[in-house]
Design a protein around this nucleic acid. Structure first.
Lengths: 325, 325
DNA sequence: TTGTAAGCGTTATCAG
DNA sequence: CTGATAACGCTTACAA
C-alpha cells in the first residue's frame, strides 16, 4: 500500500481508505490510486487487515463429507448467502470421528473466523469449551437441541423416524426393515422408527447396517442381504437416504420384485432424483437449501449484533408420498 | 503467547518455539507451556504467523460447483492429501462465468494462499496476469494444454470425444445423438465426437443441449426431447455425464425401449452408480481421485521446491464397456 | 480530505 | 536452550 501511495502521491493510509471506503477519499485521489493499483497488480493483504481489525470475513464450515449431496447442497446454499455478504468459507471435512472434528475446530479457530458452522449437535467436551471461549457465533446444523452451543438449525430425527413408522403402519404394512449407513443421526431415526413400529404393529423391523457411505451399490447390496440373511419376504423398507432407497429399488427390479406391491421403499432426503426414479420414491423431504440459508441468516444476525428471539430453528420435514410405498 | 509465557515463566518467543518446533525447547519448559495452554484454552493466531512468515498453509481451490460429485470427489482427494501435509483448503464455487472466477481469484489471493487450484484452462487475461504475478504454484485441473499458467493435470477432451465416436462406429451404430449440460469441456467432447462420427459414418448426430445442471430428471427430459423434437429412432446416445445417462436409461425403460438393442447409452465419468445401474452403464472412466491427488502432489513439489520435469500431467481416460451400449 | 502514530500477534534474526 | 528486537502490512484512533 505504501508503494501504491507513492505512485499516486498520497500516504499509505489514504490507499487503505480508498480500498475499504472509497467515499472517504476525493474523486481525483481515488482515480490516481486506482490507476496505480491497475499498473502494479497490487492485491491487498487480507491477513494483515484481519489481524488488526479483528474481522477476518472468514466463516468456517465443518461437514462430515462434501461428496454427499446432502451436505454439499446445504453448504452451497450456506456459502452463497455468505458470499453475497462478503464472507468466504473455510471448509473442512471432519469424517465421522469426534476427535477429528476437535482437531479441525482448533485448526479453524486459529484462522480467527468470524463465525463457525458445525454439523450435528454432538461434539467433544473440549470442542464445546474451546468454541464457547472463542466468542464467535456458532451454528449447529441438521439437528435440534434445547442446549445448543449457540444456535442450531435442523429438525428432530426422532420425530422423523416416528413419522415414517406411522406412515408404514397407516399404509397397512405389517412388516418392516431398516437399511442405514450407520451415521449417528440415521441411527436415531431408525431407533425411533423401530420403537414406534413395534408399538403400532407388535413387530420388530429387520435391520441392515451397511457401515459404509451411502451409494446405489450399497443399496442393492442391502436388499440382497435383507433377503438372504434375514429372510425378508415383503413389507416396508425404510432407508437412511434416497441413494440407498434407489439402490433397493434397482435391486428389487433386477430380482423381479414388484414395488410397491411386494415391497415398499421409503427414502430419506427427497434428493433431486427421488421424483424421477421409476417408480418415483416416497421419501421424507428435508429442505437442505433452507437449512443452509437459515444457518447463514442466523449467523449473520449474530455477527451484526441483531437480537435473535429463539436460537433454535426447527425446520421440520415432510413426508412426500409418491409411488414406491 | 505473552500471557502463556508469563504463566509458564518464560518469554513469548519460547512459547512460539514450543508450538512450532517442540524439539527446540527443554522438556520441562515444554511441559509448563503445555499446562498453561490447557488451563487458558489458548488458540494461536495463524493470521499473525502467516503475516510474518509469509506462509499461510492455506491452499485455495476454485471449482464450478461443489454439488456435482465430479468436482467434489476430486476436491475431496485433493484436500485429503493437502490436509495430511498440514494445509487447509479455502474453497469457492465460481459457477461457469469467467468474470466470477476472476473475482474469486482476487479474493483468494488476498488471503495469501501458498498455492492455488483452478478448474479448467480458460481464464480471463487479467486472472492469468494476476496469478503469474502472485508468484505461487498454480494447478489447472480437468484439462491439458501446452501452455498452462504453471501446472496442469487432466486429459484431452477432444481425444475423449473421438474415442467415444470410434467406439460407436466400431460397435456398428449408424446413428448417434449427443446429450449435454452445456459446460465448456462437455462441448469440446461433443464436437470431437460429432466430427469423428461424421467421418466414420457420414451421419450427423442429433443434439440436445440442456443448458442446466446435469441431473436424473434432465436426462429423462433429454431422451423425451430427442424422440419428440428430433425424431430420434435409435442409435447411440453419448451423454456428457453418467447422471444424464442414468436419466436416459430410466426414461427409456419407462417408455419400454430396450437397451442396448434399440438404443445404446454411453455415459461419462464412471461414477460410483454407473456399475450398479440396470443395465450397467458403459462409460468413459475418469479417475477423479487421481486427478485431485496428482494435483496436490504437483503443488506440494512446487511448494517444497522440488523440480518437476514436465508440468503437464495427462491422466487419460478409459472406455469401460458394460451393458448399456 | 488527508496524514501521523500506534499496534494487531506472530516469526526471524541475532545474541547470550 | 532462551531472550530481546525488529519486522510483516494493514486498520484505528487522533490530529491537521
Amino acid at each position: 500500500m505504501a508503494a501504491i501511495g507513492r505512485l499516486a502521491g498520497v500516504s499509505q493510509v489514504t490507499v487503505s481508505r480508498a480500498l475499504s471506503d472509497p467515499s472517504k477519499v476525493s474523486a481525483d485521489t481515488l482515480r490516481r490510486i486506482r490507476e496505480a493499483i491497475d499498473q502494479t497488480g497490487f492485491v491487498p493483504n487480507a491477513l494483515a487487515g484481519a489481524l488488526v481489525s479483528r474481522k477476518s470475513r472468514l466463516i468456517s464450515a465443518l461437514v462430515p463429507s462434501i461428496t454427499s449431496i446432502v451436505y454439499s447442497a446445504m453448504v452451497q446454499a450456506f456459502g452463497e448467502r455468505m458470499r453475497a455478504k462478503g464472507y468466504q468459507i473455510l471448509l473442512s471435512e471432519t469424517g465421522s470421528a469426534p476427535e477429528d472434528e476437535e482437531d479441525a475446530i482448533m485448526l479453524h479457530l486459529s484462522r480467527r473466523p468470524d463465525a463457525m458452522m458445525l454439523t450435528g449437535i454432538h461434539h467433544s467436551p473440549k470442542a464445546r469449551k474451546v468454541l464457547l471461549g472463542a466468542g464467535i457465533p456458532v451454528v449447529e446444523l441438521w439437528d435440534v437441541t434445547e442446549s445448543p452451543i449457540d444456535l442450531c438449525v435442523g429438525f428432530s430425527h426422532g420425530a422423523a423416524g416416528r413419522a415414517a413408522a406411522d406412515f408404514a403402519a397407516d399404509a397397512g404394512y405389517r412388516r418392516a426393515a431398516l437399511v442405514h449407513a450407520g451415521d449417528e443421526r440415521a441411527l436415531r431415526r431408525k431407533d425411533a422408527f423401530a420403537e414406534r413400529f413395534r408399538q403400532r404393529t407388535g413387530q420388530d423391523p429387520a435391520e441392515i447396517n451397511l457401515n459404509a457411505p451411502a451409494s446405489l451399490g450399497q443399496g442393492r447390496l442391502a436388499l440382497s442381504r435383507l433377503i438372504e440373511e434375514t429372510g425378508f419376504g415383503g413389507g416396508l423398507i425404510f432407508c437412511s437416504s434416497d441413494l440407498l432407497a434407489h439402490g433397493v429399488v434397482t435391486e428389487a427390479q433386477a430380482r423381479g420384485l414388484r414395488i410397491p406391491q411386494e415391497i415398499g421403499v421409503l427414502g430419506f432426503g427427497d434428493q433431486e432424483f427421488a421424483a424421477h426414479v421409476e417408480p418415483a420414491l416416497t421419501t421424507l423431504s428435508v429442505d437442505r437449501e433452507a437449512l443452509g440459508r437459515q444457518a447463514a441468516e442466523a449467523l449473520l444476525c449474530r455477527i451484526e449484533g441483531e437480537p435473535i428471539d429463539r436460537p433454535i430453528f426447527d425446520l421440520g420435514f415432510k413426508l412426500v408420498r409418491r409411488d414406491s410405498a
